[in-house]
Design a protein around this nucleic acid. Structure first.
Length: 491
RNA sequence: GGUCCCAUCGUCUAGUCUGGCCUAGGACACCAGGUUUUCAUCCUGGCAACAGGGGUUCGAAUCCCCUUGGGAUCACCA
């Protein structure tokens, strides 16, 4: 296990959709490994599926990576010495290996149609046995094969999987995993149009880019022996492997769109704090020790180790994610919290589009900081603090209709009017009023809160009054529906 | 069905490699109290797991075997 190769890891997405949560975590582990070992993290775009590629997907993947703070040293928009980093631009680099494979015989031409092979596969499965290959072409002489190929007969290049070979993969997470070549099929390495397939190209690229550690999802574990065979055929140095467990949905199956949001982008637009999501992704299949579950990316890099990635799949637990979000929000400094929340306030038309996270807004917003889980929740919570009069919800309306509320509100308004500003102790002022009226605090506070905020929950009233200011506070006390004594009965 | 992977509280996990310190620890969720004029926060306490069966051993969550259960994969997609 004396690995002297410099650490070079890669994340290799295909631009066929948004960045998946699972992909994001894989990228994160790669990044963390590189950053914690002084290695290089590179991005390789696997865009050989021309039909499904899109520039839009590429950009959204890059954006998601940046949002998560996973910066890459080589890749799109970051040149390195191992480019190009788009597989579509690397096609010419595969020619030599393909030619060599045909020459040496570990690639052979297969003239069977995809349809007829599908029939064979089906038959094999029905017979509860494993399909390996159609023997007709495996042993065709090279001369015959080349002749038919030259004559224009459509064919693919299959990898001639050797007989009776043990392929042992040393995986940093799973230990030694053994496969027998006798169970493997002669897989297609090159399509009729000359384009090589994933397993072939992946090995070629990883080798050309001198990838030292392949850290990827567990679903690739069964692909690995095929790739290992390519390294062996070409006499290339194999990378080390680490197959990380899958992220599962509530149903215990691989996280899919059916089980919830699977695109990182969805979490971004919904106002999840980055640090919380980053933290949470780490917690899925990784642990620092027996106690720590809240940590920063710097703290992660201090201790990151592939050995601490667990073997079993992890169910995506939104409860814990939300708890982490709230926790991270509470840890934020007020200015950055305000800045994070500002776009949502603008969106909700509570502040003007050119508003800034100034001191006034900060003091308003800060009283909600410990009461929200997502940035996007702020507008709904804080709406009552904007404008002259709030909207009164059902419970508030009911509270305002209770007996004697009108006189209570007038008395409080009077007391507020009489006090100095800013008020030293709103609570004490209200208490005095309550005593004068011979009422309990609750009886007074409830309608006052309803009048002031339009709802029965929320921040401390002293904060509310301070933020609203004397004028608006009094206006709300004096002009709420019941204070005007003309509110219609509950409908 | 073939191949491969996995198996500790409902969930994420520590402990497994290097058996004893484990009457199995932490966190989320849940329940009960407390703080708070309300809600939230916060604090305290509680509930709750080694899948089953065989071995090995003085001793097993930890090592071995079997069973069971779950998952991944089986494309001329990546």
């Amino acid at each position: 296990m004396t690995e002297s190769r410099p650490v070079r890891v890669r994340f290799a997405p295909s631009p066929t959709g948004m960045l998946h949560i699972g992909g994001a975590r894989t990228a994160l582990f790669n990044w963390a490994y590189a950053r914690s070992r002084g290695g290089t993290f590179l991005l390789r775009i696997e865009d050989t599926d021309i039909e499904r590629n899109s520039e839009e997907s590429l950009q959204s993947i890059l954006d998601s990576m940046r949002w998560l703070g996973l910066d890459w040293d080589e890749g799109p928009e970051a040149d390195g010495n191992y480019g190009p980093y788009f597989q579509s631009q690397r096609v010419h680099t595969y020619q030599a290996a393909m030619a060599r494979g045909v020459e040496e015989g570990w690639l052979y031409r297969c003239f069977a149609s995809a349809e007829e092979l599908e029939v064979q596969r089906e038959a094999a499965r029905a017979a509860k046995t494993n399909w390996r290959f159609d023997p007709r072409f495996r042993d065709l002489s090279k001369q015959d094969a080349e002749a038919r190929h030259a004559a224009g007969e459509k064919n693919v290049l299959r990898f001639r999987v050797p007989e009776g070979e043990e392929i042992v993969i040393k995986d940093h997470i799973r230990g030694a995993v053994a496969f027998s070549s006798n169970d493997m099929e002669d897989w297609v390495a090159v399509r009729p149009n000359g384009m090589p397939t994933y397993n072939f190209v992946c090995a070629l690229d990883d080798s050309a880019m001198e990838i030292s550690h392949v850290i990827r999802g567990e679903e690739h574990l069964v692909n690995t022996p095929k790739q290992v065979l390519v390294y062996r055929a070409l006499g290339l140095a194999e990378p080390e492997y680490a197959h990380v467990p899958l992220i599962l949905g509530q149903d215990g199956k691989k996280l899919s769109k059916r089980t919830g949001d699977t695109a990182l982008g969805d979490y971004i637009t919904k106002g999840y704090p980055v640090d919380a999501l980053f933290n949470f992704l780490c917690l899925l299949g990784f642990s620092i020790d027996d106690k720590t579950d809240v940590f920063t990316r710097e703290e992660l890099l201090q201790v990151f180790d592939l050995k601490r990635i667990s073997k079993s799949g992890a169910i995506f637990d939104t409860d814990k994610l939300h708890w982490l979000c709230g926790d991270w929000i509470r840890r934020m400094a007020t200015p950055s919290f305000t800045a994070a929340v500002l776009p949502y306030l603008i969106d909700a038309d509570l502040v003007s589009p050119d508003a800034s996270a100034d001191a006034e807004l900060q003091s308003l917003v800060s009283v909600f900081q410990e009461r929200i889980t997502l940035f996007s929740e702020l507008p709904a919570q804080a709406a009552g603090m904007f404008g002259e009069l709030p909207e009164y919800d059902q419970k508030a309306q009911k509270a305002l209709q209770a007996e004697g509320v009108s006189s209570v509100l007038q008395a409080v308004a009077k007391a507020v009017d009489a006090s100095s500003w800013p008020m030293e102790d709103f609570s004490a002022t209200v208490k005095t009023v309550a005593e004068e009226l011979g009422l309990g605090m609750g009886k007074v506070m409830k309608p006052v809160r309803a009048a002031l905020t339009g709802t029965l929950g929320g921040p401390e009233l002293a904060d509310v009054v301070r933020i609203l200011g004397k004028k608006r506070s009094m206006k709300r006390l004096q002009e709420c529906p019941s204070a005007l004594e003309d509110s219609a009965p509950e409908g």
